[in-house]
């Protein structure tokens, strides 16, 4: 059963990452391929403070969020003020820069060696308890995302998504909205990253690559862009299926590419035939325009 709770924690953590990404992708239609980098910032901040400075796990979270918020703010301000696809390219480049920093700044991050023996908070040491902790954070994250979605602020985000020019023409500062939601999303992602570090107990740069960012995007699309519960379902489906595959005698050389093909194909098929995902966004009357 231990393994079962491990998978549950993994689902909850990817749920947090996906829900937070949904804020920018689903609510606002900003396509970021740097989400794994912010997850990485959270993971590294927590891991370094836990192993090097003897911080309490919960005390690392504000630091992780602050760093992620600051860095994402810089990225957002420099790219989101530009029209067109620049923010995609900006986040793309940023993802690679940050990966290189994790990999090559050996003095700080341990480079390719990663960071080992990352402790879990004492009261949540077992897999069962850690699963409860991550589910708790997921619940908080969902609550925040829903509140954001239902608030007037969230309605402006959706208006920007539907028609940027119109939103700007009614006097909304589009850039400010975009930057703020991007920063919020990155801060939540850093919490996911910190929890991830605790679960796996080991992190290295190879986790936080552009492939991971694309994987997270796939979870958002398959789950349902704009629906935060959909994000949790998307994460659950795509985390559990490959874990379940471990129990069947599929040769590993074949299993891992097949897993990738599966989620790639699912993403294409969903975009084409069910673009609203497993759980479509619920739009209450009067919400848009």
């Amino acid at each position: 059963m231990n393994y079962f709770f491990y998978v549950i924690s993994l689902v909850a953590i990817y749920g947090i990452l996906t829900v937070s990404l949904n804020l920018v992708v689903g609510y606002t239609a900003i396509l970021s391929v740097a989400h794994a980098a912010f997850m990485g910032i959270g993971a590294y901040a927590a891991a370094l403070l836990l192993t090097g400075w003897g911080f309490n796990f919960f005390a690392t979270l504000p630091v992780a969020m602050a760093v992620a918020g600051l860095v994402s703010g810089i990225l957002a301000v420099s790219t989101l003020r530009l029209k067109g696809d620049y923010y995609i390219i900006g986040s793309f480049g940023f993802q690679v820069i940050l990966y290189n920093v994790f990999l090559n700044w050996i003095g700080l991050t341990g480079g390719p060696f990663g960071i080992r023996n990352i402790p879990r908070p004492q009261a949540f040491g077992s897999n069962l308890r850690y699963a409860i902790l991550t589910l708790g954070f997921l619940a908080v994250c969902l609550w925040v995302a829903r509140r954001v979605g239902e608030s007037p602020y969230g309605k402006v985000l959706r208006a920007i998504r539907e028609d940027e020019a119109a939103a700007a023409s009614i006097g909304k500062n589009v850039t400010r909205y975009k930057v703020s939601v991007f920063v919020l999303s990155s801060m939540l992602a850093s919490v996911g990253g910190a929890l991830y570090a605790g679960l796996i107990s080991y992190i290295d740069p190879f986790t936080f690559t552009i492939h991971e960012s694309i994987f997270l995007l796939a979870l958002v699309i398959i789950g349902g862009s704009g629906n935060v519960y959909g994000s949790v379902v998307g994460a659950a489906v795509l985390i559990v299926i490959p874990e379940a595959l471990r129990f069947f005698d599929v040769p590993t050389t074949v299993a891992s590419p097949i897993r990738e093909i599966l989620y790639g194909l699912l993403m294409i098929l969903f975009l084409r035939f069910r673009p609203k995902g497993l759980l479509p966004e619920r739009i209450t009357p009067g919400m848009v325009r």
Partner: peptide
Amino acid sequence: RTSKQIRSVPATLWALGLV
């Protein structure tokens, strides 16, 4: 995008059932 309320219960159940 339509602005009317969409409730797709079968899909929801299907997904949760699968999980």
